[in-house]
Design a protein around this nucleic acid. Structure first.
Lengths: 213, 213
DNA sequence: CGGTCCTTTGAATTTCCTCAAACAAAGTGG
DNA sequence: CCACTTTGTTTGAGGAAATTCAAAGGACCG
């Protein structure tokens, strides 16, 4: 009952509540999060890494007036935590029921190089994202998003979206109506088929990919 | 004669030429770059850090069709190099005559932690940038940019811009005309005074700051 | 002084957003 | 199992914001 309906255009006051899960800070243990529950605790020291065993997570920032920017989506098998700087009003939330393994923040070289690699990947991702948000049209943005999701889910023909249109809009910097209309354009051109709002079949991968650059 | 006139709306074919400066890869030595010359060499290994002794540098990415996104501006006294992933068609260029010190990529702990701190800062900056580009209006974007520049130059009343309107537009995700019109709005509201196109006096810092969030 | 590049401004157009309404899907309680 | 509510999605109409196209002025340089 809080951040679910949050979007840039439907603004809200205040920030979402933060929920800590049982066993959260015990390393090498899987923590469970129900859909729409928060993952970062407010006082959390930065540097902690999280590996998603199953489910999906969104990372976002808020403007004072409630406008939201989703910085990243993370899917099963992915590691995150580098984006999360609690001192800069970042939030991480499970989008669906999600299992997360908290990785030890040990000081050995191995962990350090892993952290560095993650930092580099996160940076590249953030900048690709910036390029998309800053420099592409609505349909191009959606195409980039769909191609990315398809690749990360390992199935180039079919995508299951764990997020709402609000999430997608706040990720791509546009309203939910524009997201929906962009879906409609891709559908009307025979590029994708919408089995339902969360399930997308890619009919013409080549055209989608061409749109996305 | 290459990347200067590059912008998202005035598209160009091809990529800018890369110029290597004398003494570039010798550590602890200052390399000089003339205005509009490239700093990263194409094959440059990542991980190298650069400290700007004087001048200013832009970091950017290109889309295939020539649209450009400026990812960051770096001013004198700042360290950069983390954003630069040569394998992802990133470019770094001096905007004005610039002196750069290449820092040793040593493997000791001190250097590693410095690199990590830089990574974190770059990430935070990138995400602030994403929030601005994705979620703010033209005037708000310009206000954020001006406040940021003023703080980084250590003078809250006056800004010297080392970059063109094209750079600003490609940094904020808008056209040069919109940048110019946004400047005009701030001027017409008595928030700033334009001594010339590159020199801005901030008359009402409070109003500018309020616009920027 | 002529040329080039940058900037500003205007007018027309396009894109996206806002507001509104209807529909669909999923959950709740009787 | 069915009304009822809530939440999410789609679509339309109108309006606002930014872009595109065009032109003119200004600064700098050879």
């Amino acid at each position: 009952m809080y951040a679910t309906a949050l979007s840039s255009t439907r603004r809200v006051a205040g920030v979402p509540s933060i929920v800590s899960a049982p066993g959260f800070s015990r390393p090498q243990q899987i923590s469970l999060f129900s859909a729409e529950s928060g993952i970062y605790a407010q006082g959390e020291r930065s540097g902690a890494l999280y590996r998603i065993e199953f489910g999906a997570v969104r990372i976002y920032r808020l403007l004072a007036d409630g406008r939201r920017q989703v910085v990243a989506f993370h899917l099963a098998g992915e590691t995150f935590g580098f984006e999360a700087n609690p001192s800069h009003s970042f939030f991480a939330e499970a989008m669906v029921r999600t299992g997360v393994r908290t990785l030890n923040h040990s000081t050995n070289d191995e962990a350090a190089s892993e952290l560095m690699a993650l930092a580099l990947r996160s940076m590249i991702r953030a900048q690709e994202h910036l390029l998309v948000v800053g420099r592409q049209s609505a349909v191009e943005k959606l195409a980039v998003f769909l191609v990315d999701m398809a690749e990360r889910q390992g199935d180039l023909d079919h995508i299951d979206l764990p997020m709402t249109r609000i999430d997608i809009g706040d990720y791509l910097g546009m309203t939910i109506e524009t997201v929906s209309r962009s879906f409609a354009k891709l559908r009307d051109e025979g590029i994708v088929r919408l089995l339902n709002a969360r399930s997308v079949e890619i009919i013409k991968p080549g055209r989608l990919r061409r749109l996305s650059r």
